[in-house]
């Protein structure tokens, strides 16, 4: 029954049990014997710095039970490099393991270490796509994707098209919108973006807003572009008025348009209209945030310099 103590291949190892420090351990877990035993063997081989095939098997076993064990991954990586193991096989093992532990972060760090050593992004984009199919907003996957794009200079290798595909699937996927921002503005080797790109991005966000006016992601994106370009909010006045106007409270198509209009009127020092827009938000179109809109109203009383 015991995986290690009954196995002749491990008979030379004296397992090192866990010392839980006296009679009152905190957050003690009812470990299964399988875990306790494997961990005792792990401590024993780690203490000796053993680098071997059987260590790879043992770390894999531990990872299946506790993928968040931070040094077992480092130990495994060192072992792989010391034994000159087949790193492509490691990636092949990692693929299903990552799918099994979607929320685990250490797996991605390890993957980065291995891919760095392989010095090749072959197959990575395909793998990422399959991960995003399982969980299209997985934070670790998107973070890893950014690393990959930077590390292997994939800026112009279909990233923008890939994002567009994902936004076509779900125009409310904020992770995809954020990745779009990264693809457009994140390349440090470029010195800013030109007006053509800015215009293209504005048009893209506007098109998404026409499709889903109450979707905050493209509104945030659009207003981010404005700030990036240091343009006043009023640049978007006509556009915002297509979706809402404080004068037509029965024809409001987007609370985010009202929010933007409130800023535009404040910018124009048209306090009355700004108040109207914020009142509509507080009372009718976004009462969840009534306190916030009222707070914004109170800011209109302050001298402009304070805001």
């Amino acid at each position: 029954m015991s995986k290690y103590s009954d196995d002749p291949a491990w008979s030379d190892i004296v397992p090192l049990p866990q010392d839980d420090g006296g009679p009152n351990p905190l957050a003690a877990i009812a470990y299964k014997d399988e875990y306790s035993e494997a961990m005792s063997y792990l401590r024993a081989v780690m203490a000796e710095n053993e680098m071997s095939e059987r260590v790879l098997g043992l770390t894999e076993h531990i990872i299946s039970m506790n993928p968040a064990h931070y040094t077992v991954w480092l130990y495994r990586a060192k072992c792989l490099f010391t034994l000159s193991s087949d790193l492509k096989a490691e990636i092949a093992w990692l693929n299903p393991t990552a799918l099994k532990h979607l929320k685990n972060y250490q797996i991605w760090h390890h993957r980065q270490t291995i891919i760095e050593k392989l010095d090749s992004a072959d197959g990575e984009v395909t793998f990422i796509s399959s991960m995003l199919e399982a969980d299209s907003k997985n934070y670790h996957v998107w973070s890893y994707r950014q690393w990959l794009v930077r590390r292997f200079d994939l800026w112009h290798e279909g990233e923008l098209e890939a994002v567009e595909g994902m936004l076509k699937e779900d125009v409310r996927n904020n992770s995809a919108w954020n990745h779009r921002w990264f693809v457009v503005f994140g390349n440090e080797k470029m010195e800013g973006v030109d007006d053509g790109v800015l215009e293209r991005e504005m048009d893209y966000a506007k098109a998404a807003i026409y499709m889903t006016p109450q979707n905050q992601s493209p509104w945030n994106y659009l207003r981010g572009l404005l700030r990036y370009a240091k343009l006043p909010a009023s640049t978007l006045k006509e556009f915002a008025l297509e979706f809402a106007s404080p004068e037509k409270p029965d024809e409001v198509h987007s609370s985010h348009a009202l929010d933007l209009l409130a800023d535009i009127y404040a910018e124009e020092e048209n306090k009355k209209e700004a108040e109207k827009a914020l009142d509509l938000l507080a009372k009718r179109f976004d009462p969840i945030r009534a306190n916030y809109w009222n707070y914004r109203k109170s800011l209109l009383e302050l001298p402009a310099a304070a805001s």
Partner: peptide, 16 residues
């Protein structure tokens, strides 16, 4: 004892 399902959080025992 915390149930064994917390094993995947063994490495976070101090936060638990």
């Amino acid at each position: 004892y915390l149930p064994y399902q917390y094993t995947s959080n063994d490495s976070n025992r101090m936060s638990l």
